[in-house]
């Protein structure tokens, strides 16, 4: 009977440890999801701001990114002004990294 009780206690203790490990992993998962979301927000707010400082200051005058594509880097300032999709601000549909999680 003592052996059974010891075995039972041992199994219970192992289960407790596994549950604690799982809790840590769940916390880590949530932290990563949050970090992805925040980094996207930071990136969008840095790029959505309009600027009228001219070629050198306005990132939207030329360029591109992983969300819209990098074709903008090929274009000159004249071609990109006003009609380029890269000049359109970001919205929540552009959160391609957060949206890769079905839970998001």
């Amino acid at each position: 009977m003592n052996d059974n009780t010891k075995e039972y206690e041992k199994l219970k203790s192992e289960l407790k440890k596994s549950l604690a490990t799982r809790n840590k992993l769940e916390d880590e998962f949530e932290r990563l999801e949050q970090e992805i979301y925040e980094k996207e927000t930071e990136y969008f707010s840095g790029n959505n701001a309009t600027s009228n400082t001219g070629i050198a200051g306005n990132r939207f005058s030329y360029g591109g990114n992983i969300i819209k594509g990098f074709d903008g880097f090929n274009k000159s300032h004249h071609h990109s002004a006003g009609h380029d999709s890269h000049n359109r601000g970001f919205n929540n549909d552009d959160r391609i990294f957060s949206l890769s999680s079905a839970i998001f």
Binding site: F29, L32, E33, E35, E40, I66, F97, S100
Partner: peptide
């Protein structure tokens, strides 16, 4: 790359 790394870690 930073974003892809976060996704891979997730």
């Amino acid at each position: 790359k930073d974003m892809a790394l976060l996704v891979a870690r997730r």
